[in-house]
Amino acid sequence: MPIKGVAIIEERLNAMLGISESTDFTCSLAEAFDGPFYYLPGENIWEVGEKQCYLWFVQSGFGFDRILLENGHKMLNGMTEPGIFICDEKSLLWGGPAVSDSIISSPTTAYRISFPTFREFLSQHKGFRESLIQINAYFVHMRKLRLLKMKHMNKEDYWIDVKERFPGIELYCTQTEIANYFAVSKSTMHRLMK
């Protein structure tokens, strides 16, 4: 992997952990990533059902990730953007095939580490395990906010908010996927998008 990729991953890890200088564990984790991998618009970084899953670091490019719901529909779940670490969380937690996908909407460069390698890394680095709690506390906060917006925010305001957050969303995701993101019916979504 080019030095540049390692340095960017390391820098991003340090920022997430709120530290100004690299530690042994941020350095070793960054070095354990493979890549770069290049994707063109319309390609998937990973797909639903994929058995060999990875934790990805997106260096550049944009896209969307979607999650498969119990009823078989896909729900838009978030945006893939530069600087993000992203993966199929269910597979990371308990193995099994991916229940989500990530589709790219602009040329993308990404790096990856396999789940077994990442899990092994976590078992060996106490410092990183402790930091992971802090990182996940932030994710809990973000998801809490997402859940409450989904449940209680005025849908018209929410649509304006989402369009600003995910420019061009309606070009890349189906109305059903977006309606699921908002937890509204397709007809309500159609009205909101007019």
Partner: peptide, 10 residues
């Protein structure tokens, strides 16, 4: 929390 979000989208 992801599972609460998923449930609400059903």
């Amino acid at each position: 929390y992801q599972s609460y979000i998923n449930e609400f989208a059903l």
